[in-house]
Computed example of a mutant assay.
Amino acid sequence: MADKAMADENGKQTERETTLSRLLKSKMAAQLLISLRLAALVATSTAAGLMAFNKETITVTVAVVGTKPILQSFTAAFQQTPAFVYFVIVNAIASLYNLLAMLLGPYLKNRGRDVLVHLSDMAVFALVATGAAAAASMAELGKNGNKYARWNPICDRFEAFCIRGGVALVAAFIGAVLLLVMNAFTAISLMCKSVASNN
């Protein structure tokens, strides 16, 4: 009888420990997810802000009449390139989405919401990745030009513009990687929850 009571007590204690370890794991998983989302928010908002305010004007001498130089100003701005405009828009969307997901996350907890957020995360990752890729292709053209089409590089003249654009691109690619990791983590968490509920 005492052995049975002891076995029952051990079983209850093991069950409590298992429940406690599950709770700790779920809290750690939730904190990791929030950290990833916050880091992605910082990266994408940095990328959007840097590119949105990226503008440089230079003044060069185009001719000399007598002793008087004729000056002309040239401006490089993100609005002049559709790929950069798209880059700013998708990174701003990603930043707003991650902010809303963090603020509304605690109020919407169920499996349907988790699946919907995961699908939305995948869509946002795709937007950020395509925006970064499109902007990177234009940045490469600005840096190296295209000798076959006889397009000259501009980064030798608009150096500050190109440096700020490069930093924005790095931030966007970091944001895309963080979103990818977050998607993988969420998919694994959803799979583990599904397996646990079926057992």
Rank of each mutant, 00 (worst) to 15 (best):
K25C: 08
R16C: 01
K4F: 12
L116N: 01
K27E: 10
K25R: 13
R22N: 11
N144Q: 08
K193H: 15
L23K: 06
L96S: 09
G105T: 01
L104S: 12
P106S: 08
L96G: 12
A134N: 13
Q72E: 15
Y86S: 12
R164G: 06
L178Y: 09
I174R: 06
R164L: 14
A135Q: 01
S120L: 14
L103E: 13
K143D: 03
T67S: 12
P69R: 12
L38V: 13
K4N: 10
L180A: 15
R37M: 07
V170N: 09
L116V: 05
R16N: 10
A149E: 15
K147I: 03
A187V: 11
A94D: 00
G112R: 13
A29K: 03
F74D: 10
F78Y: 15
A132L: 07
L32P: 00
D121G: 00
P82M: 08
V65L: 14
V85D: 03
N10G: 01
T44I: 11
D114Q: 15
V42C: 06
W151L: 14
N146D: 15
R111C: 03
M182T: 06
A187S: 15
C155Q: 01
I70P: 01
S35A: 10
N198G: 05
A135G: 11
A184N: 07
N152H: 10
L169I: 11
R113H: 12
L50D: 00
K27Q: 14
A92K: 01
L24V: 10
L99W: 11
G142A: 03
G131V: 02
A48R: 00
A136M: 12
R164S: 11
